[in-house]
Nucleic acid binder design. Sequence first.
RNA 1: GCCGGUGUAGCUCAGCGGUAGAGCAGCGGUUUUGUAAACCGCUGGUCGGGGGUUCAAUUCCCUUCACCGGCUCCA
Length: 664
Amino acid sequence: MSESASSNKSSVESKVINVILPDGSTRQLSSLSTGEDLAKEISSRLLKDSIGLEINGELADLKTILKDQDKVKIITIKDAQSLEFLRHSTAHILACAVQKVYPQAKITIGPVIQDGFYYDFYIPDTNLSTEDLPKIEAEMQRIVDAGLEFRKIQITNPDEQIKEFIQQGEKFKAELLEKFKAENPTQYGLFHPPSPEGGANQDTSLSQDPVWSDLCRGPHIANTKQVKAFKLLSVSSAYWHGDEKQESLQRIYGTAWFSKADLEAYLQRIEEAERRDHRKLSRQHELFSTHDEAGPGLIFWHPKLAFLRARIEEFWKDLHEDNGYELVFTPHIARRELWETSGHTEFYMDNMFQMKQIDEQEYLLKPMNCPFHVLIFDSTRHSYRELPIRLAEMGTVYRFERSGALHGLARVRGFTQDDAHVFCTPNQLVDEVCAIIKLIDIVYSKFDLKYSAELSTRPEERIGEDGIWDMAENALKKALEQSGLAYQLNEGDGAFYGPKIDFKLQDALGRSWQGATIQVDFNLPNRFELKYTSSDGNLEKPVMLHRAIFGSLERFTALLIENYAGAFPFWLSQKQVAILPISDRHNEYCKEIKEALKKLKVRANIDERAEKIGAKIRDAQIEQIPYMLVIGDKEIDEKKISVRDRRKGDLGSMSIDDFIESLK
RNA sequence: GCCGGUGUAGCUCAGCGGUAGAGCAGCGGUUUUGUAAACCGCUGGUCGGGGGUUCAAUUCCCUUCACCGGCUCCA
């Protein structure tokens, strides 16, 4: 192990190098200059804000020695990447602190995530809880205040180092190094800075040995003092390598920022997001419930949310009938035999609800709709002229989800998919996928939802020949490109029966959920021996697509609730207008208004309670009713209504007709 | 399923070895009100379920169920 040269520029200053700055200009520096030196050259202000470097497109430590012709960008606190430096380094500070507080703790990895970082530990005989966080934070603060320097340490002899790790009991580090030993591995150490006075009496040994170190490829901030604001947020668990057969690790989540104000703002954002949680909003607005008596993950839709769902289903039905889909209805259960044919008993049985034998027959609750749609397709002969055939159904399915996975409406055990299956020829595949992508965009735009797409390709374990996979993957890729949709490639993440495009949506807290999906299926057409007659009279196997746009109505609704923060748009609101009489004597006129609105299919209710107008407004406002009509003597005299918008407040008085007009 | 946490009135929460309390909601009354909360009164809980320790358990222990944060898995 040898410490790399950082600021110990030797006497070799004769040579010069040129580095290229982001604006294309070059800058001459003495050789062995670091990024820090470059920043110093440019301005003292820049030096102060410098966090790290981007050299030839790769992030690097500020104190990296620059080479001739390097393209260098200095990352300052204004650049988004600076937070990666900060958070990654704070994760290390956390790890160092945890090993101080719990000497038996073994370290693993600690990456940066959205808005923060985590670090996983193996701590024998100790279970962390949130109550332990303050003392860890205090230890971290001591490290920050000590102003320790992050320095890179080359691992010159990986095998030696692995032995050392094993001796220290750091078996996770040993395993990681074993994996990376050929890739020029490095450690990062936390070092006491050289004393500022320098001079002869300086204790040089202080800066020679790291206080603490961790296998890491970096990059890092230069000094722990740069961590201006951090907070540990939660404790949870995770498996080593994400594999439940491996050790269970304890994970600490945290966040870090360059200023206290940023941290405060972030914590406030989280709080705000938590207020949007659909489970919380459901209690406030009586949207849905689950019941211990019925079982977890089984949803009871209350009137307000059921109303919204009914509108969504209408919208969905019209959209599909207009786009070449035919609606079907299928049962909820089927004999075991069907699921044997489809392969579900083989591949999906763990997730299926079983029923008792009925008349000596075993029935299973459906976890998917596809075999049923296949039966409809297969009940008659088909010509190539009929294809594509698109069968759609709001199909309610039941899946046994592990108890820990359940989550409000977003992850449940019984849910309704807006499912459809397209049977087509191989030649029609690209067009069909394009059409579905278009439909998905129509739907998500309608609900103001942002989404991202992922293409998942062939997994290790799969059925079907490579040629078919090539065809299907290429078709999906081509459709994505034709649609101009940016996507992320998820290699090896496809279903065993075919590749797929998944559409991801984010909830209020930034958690990502799968919404729409488009999947090619080689399995079912084979197992059910589907066929159609081609133009030359031969029997061919159709290509089958599964697709859902909402995904499940339950999950989609969860995301809608969070997206709208409970303030549903006018057309989805069960109560659209609250008519608020100032006092009893205005009730009659209010009834006239209610009738007039009813004729126009506007849903209005009169608040006849003996409350003051302020209270009535407050209650309607909390309930997020889109419009409130305030009715008193003035309105009756003028034959008008005073309109209040839940967002914009008092809009003044207008005629009913003008109000109706404004709704359009 | 795993690790950690939580479970007290419809909701939000306090209490914590001596069999429970607040605010809001609900109900009854008074008030007839002008753009986010009028006033008074009342009702409401086998303190998630079961078991144990104890003279005594909502409080301590065990177990079970559900929920929350993650992991894993997934629409």
